[in-house]
Amino acid sequence: MISVRDVYKSYGDVEVLAACSMEVRKGEVIVVCGPSGSGKSTLIKCINGLEPFERGQIVVDGVEVGKRGTNLSKLRARVGMVFQQFELFPHMKVIDNLTIAQVKVLGRGREEARRKALALLDRVGLREHADKHPGQLSGGQQQRVAIARSLALDPVCMLFDEPTSALDPEMINEVLDVMVALARDGMTMVVVTHEMGFARKVASRVVFMDQGRIVEEAPTAEFFAQPRTDRARQFLSKVLHH
């Protein structure tokens, strides 16, 4: 489904991604972790073309990102993305946040878009908030709406950029529960996160990055039980104190 081959990216003189390669098969849940500045957010933003990259190849569902002439808007409509800061559109009601892309990007009718939106809000447990504005919701509620917003476009895979890092501790679980349910339903997901409990529960594989490189990649159980590299080991020992 997603194929990243030998990707390099620099901001001016600073190299932020080097020799990054990974394969994500349909239905897999990949957790990407690593210290701050390791490039994980940048990598995930390259997958849907929000960030350009200089060398390498990324193919998503048969479409080559980064090739001139690729219709990025069309691709992004099939790839869902959830942001750390939720990024709901504050000037629109919750329901409108969910319908606008359906109508303007996919060309669905208003009624159909609305029905789908309400069904999704139901699925994340927020139907009664449909007519509120994002500013009236808590962080956890906003993030759940953001997930629903992406799901409204029937994506083939979902990218999550530290979805719970901006949340107060008591709200992290409500969002993780939604993500776990999504994973169990078979959604292909790439999740950048520090939440190792989540990784252990649903991740197929864990990818560990440091300083722009993919340092280690292993099936979940193996990664946690027997990390092969020193840096991974160091990272795990610090993170697993929670």
Binding site: A77, F89, A101, K104, A146, R149
Partner: peptide, 29 residues
């Protein structure tokens, strides 16, 4: 915030759509 534009693009909006439906309304307000 730049994240607003990113979110709009991530939903498949073209840059023009992102500007018209998401950025300009907020800028104006």
């Amino acid at each position: 915030s730049k994240g607003q534009r990113s979110a709009a693009l991530a939903l498949g909006m073209t840059p023009w759509q992102a500007m018209w439906y998401v950025v300009l309304p907020q800028a104006f307000r």
